[in-house]
Amino acid sequence: MTPPLETTDSTAEVPPEVTLTGASQKAIEGRSLSQIAWSRLKRDKVAIAGGVVVILLILVAICAPLIVKVIGHPPNDFNYEQVDPDTSLPYGSVGGISWDFPFGVEPINGRDLFSRTVYGAQVSLLIAFLATLLSVAIGVVMGTIAGFFGGWVDAVISRLMDIFLAFPLLLFALALVGAMPDELIGLRGYWLRVAIIVFVIGFFNWPYIGRIVRGQAMVLREREFVDAARSLGARSGYILAKELLPNLLAPILVYSTLLIPTNILFEAALSFLGVGVPPPTATWGGMLNQATKWYTVDPEFMFPPGLAIFVTVLAFNLFGDGLRDALDPRGRR
C-alpha cells in the first residue's frame, strides 16, 4: 500500500537561499522597435560619428551668415590686396592661408575660400534635400501602388521605371538648363536655377527608390495583417495608408539617407559643368570648376570644395549604412 501524498502549504515561508535575485526590483519591460533600433545604432560608433558630422553640416549651412560674420569675409567680396598683381596668385606658398583667411583666397580676385565653402553647403544641402524629398514622394507612391495591386498596374509602372532608368539624365539636365529662359512662373536667377535642378534630379531619380518600395510592398501584401484587414472589410486605400506605409518607413528612411549624397554629387557635377546655380553664388562644384584652371600653379584652391564634398558624402553614407543595419529586423539584438 502506497503511503499518502504529503500536502504542501502554499503559505509556507520560502527559504532565503531559493529566493530569485532581483524579484523585488522593477519588472522587466518590453522594448519597442524604435528602442531596439536606437540601441543597435548607438553601438555602431562609425554610424554615430557620421550622424554627428551630418548634423554639424546642417548647422553650418543654416548658420552660414553668422559663421562668416564671426570668421571670414563676405563670400563675394574681392580682396585684391591678398593677390600678387604680377602673377594673380595669392601671396604666400599655401594659397594665401592666414588667420584672416583660414582656407586661403581665390586667385585673381582674392575671394575668401572659407566663406564660399560655408555658403556652398547651403546650396548643396538645399538642393539635395529638396530633390530627395521629391524622389521619395513619387517613388513611394508609385512603388507602393505597383507592389500592392500587381497585374497590369504593376506592368505599366514597372515599364515606366525602366524608361526613366534608361534616360540619359545628365545630358537631359544639360540641355534643359541651357534652354531655360531667364524667367519662368515668377522665378528668375538663383531660385529659377535651383527649381530646375531640383526638378531634374528629383523627378528622374524616383525609380531607384520606387523599385525598392515595390519589392517590399509585394512581400507585405501577402502578410497576415493585410489579410486580416481585408477580412474586416478594409478598402485598398486604408490598407495602403494604415498597413503598408508604416511598415515601409524603415527602408524608405534608409534609402533616403543614401540618396542624399548621390544628389549632392549630381548637383556638384552640374555646377562643375557650368549649368548649376549661376555665379557669383558659391557652390562646391563651381569652385572645383574654377580650381581646375589653376591646378598647376595653385593646387590648394581645390582642397576646400573637394574635401567638403568628400566629407559630406562619406558622412551620409556611413550614417545610412549604420541606420540600415539598425533597422534590419534580422539583425542581432
Rank of each mutant, 00 (worst) to 15 (best):
residue 161 M to I: 06
residue 161 M to P: 02
residue 161 M to Y: 14
residue 162 D to R: 04
residue 164 F to G: 04
residue 165 L to S: 01
residue 167 F to P: 03
residue 167 F to W: 07
residue 168 P to F: 04
residue 170 L to R: 00
residue 170 L to G: 01
residue 172 F to N: 02
residue 173 A to R: 00
residue 173 A to I: 00
residue 173 A to P: 01
residue 174 L to I: 13
residue 174 L to Y: 02
residue 174 L to Q: 02
residue 177 V to D: 03
residue 178 G to M: 01
residue 178 G to W: 00
residue 179 A to H: 04
residue 180 M to V: 14
residue 182 D to L: 11
residue 182 D to R: 13
residue 183 E to Y: 13
residue 184 L to V: 12
residue 186 G to F: 12
residue 187 L to A: 10
residue 187 L to I: 10
residue 187 L to F: 15
residue 190 Y to P: 04
residue 190 Y to T: 13
residue 193 R to S: 13
residue 194 V to S: 02
residue 194 V to E: 01
residue 195 A to T: 15
residue 196 I to V: 15
residue 196 I to T: 15
residue 198 V to N: 05
residue 198 V to Y: 07
residue 199 F to G: 13
residue 200 V to A: 15
residue 200 V to T: 13
residue 201 I to C: 09
residue 201 I to Y: 04
residue 201 I to S: 10
residue 204 F to D: 07
residue 205 N to I: 00
residue 205 N to L: 03
residue 206 W to P: 00
residue 207 P to L: 06
residue 208 Y to M: 14
residue 208 Y to T: 14
residue 208 Y to W: 15
residue 209 I to E: 09
residue 210 G to T: 12
residue 211 R to Q: 14
residue 211 R to D: 11
residue 211 R to C: 11
residue 213 V to L: 12
residue 214 R to A: 07
residue 215 G to R: 12
residue 216 Q to I: 10
residue 217 A to T: 15
residue 218 M to I: 13
residue 218 M to R: 15
residue 219 V to T: 15
residue 221 R to S: 06
residue 222 E to D: 12
residue 224 E to T: 11
residue 226 V to H: 00
residue 227 D to N: 03
residue 229 A to M: 00
residue 230 R to I: 01
residue 231 S to F: 12
residue 232 L to Q: 03
residue 234 A to Q: 04
residue 234 A to K: 02
residue 236 S to K: 11
residue 236 S to G: 07
residue 236 S to Q: 10
residue 237 G to S: 04
residue 239 I to N: 01
residue 240 L to T: 01
residue 241 A to W: 09
residue 242 K to E: 04
residue 243 E to L: 01
residue 245 L to D: 03
residue 245 L to C: 04
residue 246 P to V: 09
residue 246 P to E: 06
residue 247 N to R: 07
residue 248 L to K: 05
residue 249 L to S: 12
residue 250 A to M: 09
residue 251 P to R: 09
residue 251 P to T: 08
residue 252 I to R: 07
residue 254 V to K: 12
residue 255 Y to H: 14
residue 256 S to I: 06
residue 257 T to Q: 05
residue 257 T to K: 01
